[in-house]
Design a protein around this nucleic acid. Structure first.
Lengths: 133, 133
DNA sequence: AGAGAAGATGACGTTTACGTAAAGAAGACG
DNA sequence: CGTCTTCTTTACGTAAACGTCATCTTCTCT
């Protein structure tokens, strides 16, 4: 059994991030790699957290918002009050995401129809040019 | 007929942004308010654009990405090559948005089930506490 | 005329999320 | 033993998107 930890480089390759990013996330307390001497070793838990971090970023959440949410996914040594607060935060983020999805659906439709309109314009312009030849 | 233009303050109130933001967007060539002397007057077109800008921001697009897209919605004095490029950009953004929506659906489900799990944990813990009394 | 109020133009400051360069430690290898 | 790599820490730099003065016009109103 390979102990299941990754070096910083392996971690970077796996997630397509830079070492700086991983150290930065550790400094911000989003990741907690173990140490072998002074070298970092990233555990399965770190990988799970990083995955959630990158996902959160794609939805436009700040690292701080993400950090608050991460505790929801690693429930173990939490106080109940802490968990309660985390749940509240999660509820907020959830409704953020649901609103965002609705708006996104809307925006996608808008963009599609606007594109169709422009494509039509271009097509007509081309036909006009052909007819003029 | 009130000529249908808004002062910077009216515009700010309408969209909940600051004057600085509107001037910044103008500097970045996202808005093109008319001038009355040195005062800015925001037109219907500026309002439409600002709406799209703020929407784009909520989806995590940069102002530069948004600027490139805006031309799609204000087709008038465009060259055909320009429009073609804008359409390409639009196609990219569209697939961005579609991917984002799918991922968002996924993330929403994940978050929901994780919340349910934690809520369960808390409920069980409470029942356990009651039983112990 | 004087005093606000609203808007304009610099210009420097701030936060977030890293990039990048310098300098040292530590194991691998010919 | 010397020298690569790989990794570390420390620290200054940077781009984006505004915030925040300070100073200056321009109306407007009493």
């Amino acid at each position: 059994m390979t102990s299941d930890t990754l070096t910083i480089r392996e971690m970077c390759d796996l997630f397509e991030v830079t070492p700086r990013t991983l150290r930065f996330y550790e400094a911000k307390e989003l990741l907690f790699p173990q140490r072998d001497g002074q070298k970092r070793l990233f555990t399965r838990r770190d990988r799970a957290r990083l995955k959630l971090i990158l996902r959160g970023k794609r939805f436009g959440f700040s690292l701080e918002e993400i950090r608050q949410l991460l505790d929801l996914y690693y429930v173990g040594d939490q106080q109940a009050t802490q968990l309660g607060r985390t749940l509240d935060i999660a509820r907020d983020r959830l409704s953020d995401m649901q609103r965002q999805r609705d708006e996104l659906d809307h925006a996608i439709d808008d963009l599609k129809s606007q594109m169709a309109l422009v494509e039509d314009m271009l097509a007509k312009r081309d036909r006009g040019r052909d007819a003029a030849e």
